[in-house]
Structures are given as C-alpha cells and as structure tokens.
C-alpha cells in the first residue's frame, strides 16, 4: 500500500487534483454498473423537457469520480476502510463539465489499540467555472505505522 500512515497525516493540509472531463460514456457506464437508468440521466428526450433542459449526471457519479481524483491530489493515505460521510449536492454535473477536487484534512482521531486511526477530510468538487458542485465530509480509517500505539 502506498501513501501516508496515520501518524504522518497533517491536519490542515490542503491539496487539489487535476481535472477530469465528464463524458457521455461516464453517464452510460455508471448506469450500466449501478443499474440505475433514471430518465434524467439516461433519456435525453425526457430530460430536455425538464427544468434541467438535458441529461445531467446521476448525483452519485460525483462521489465516484471524486474518489479517483482524490488519489491524484498528492495527498495519498493508506486507507483501511471508508467509514462514511455526509454529502451535499449543490449543482448538476453535465456532459462536458471538467471537475476537480479540493481536499482539506480537518481532523485526526487516534483509536487506541486499533490498527488504524480516523481521519476526517473535507472534499469539495469544483467545476470549470469554479462553482462548488458537491461537497462531502468523509471519515477514513487510515493504517498506523505501529499497531497498538
């Protein structure tokens, strides 16, 4: 496993990923994997007569893209488990949008005697117009260098 151990994670650290352009193929692939063919994302003829005026990405594609971008921020940690999080979906993601993620390490909590410690991070998903599209506060269980410390 590459990346930083719990002991090395610095509270206050900030990092930004490169961009990723969301394509029609991403929407189709997400529908294929999830089995969720919601008309807003999968039916252009339906979607263009809604207030969105065209297909938008399923909101859950955001966390999925974000998780991959998070590894490309330069902030790499040895994740043992993804414990959970709270997401807010502020705006839509459209085909052709280019997304980046900004990560901010908010908090660290040692779990005595466990193989990992909890790291709380803020993940902001930003588009090409610098609009905050989604934000999340996530809890990650990160491996310790020395078990039982």
């Amino acid at each position: 496993m590459t990346g930083a151990f719990f002991e090395e994670v610095e509270v206050g650290f900030k990092a930004e990923s490169p961009g990723r352009t969301i394509t029609e193929a991403d929407l189709v692939t997400f529908a294929a994997i999830s089995g969720d063919y919601d008309c807003l994302s999968a039916d252009e003829e339906f979607a263009r007569f809604t207030e969105y005026r065209g297909r938008v990405a399923p909101p859950l594609l955001g966390p999925c893209i974000l998780s991959g971008l998070a590894y490309r921020t330069g902030l790499s940690v040895k994740v043992l488990a993804f414990s959970g999080g709270e997401w807010k979906f502020h705006g839509d993601i459209r085909i052709g949008d280019t997304l980046r993620v900004r990560i901010h390490v908010l908090q660290k909590r040692d779990l005595r005697g466990r193989e990992g410690g909890m790291v709380i991070e803020q993940w902001d998903l930003i588009n090409q117009r610098d609009e905050l599209v989604q934000e999340a506060r996530v809890s990650l269980l990160v491996a310790k260098r020395t078990v039982g410390s």
């Binding site: 997400f30 999925c64 991959g68 971008l69 590894y71």
Partner: peptide, 12 residues
C-alpha cells in the same frame, strides 16, 4: 468496472 470508471485503483 468500478475501478475503471472511478479511477480508484486502491489495492483494497
């Protein structure tokens, strides 16, 4: 498939 779509290739 999910690793390919997300780009999350964590060894886990």
């Amino acid at each position: 498939n999910f690793a390919g779509l997300s780009g999350d290739w964590n060894v886990l």
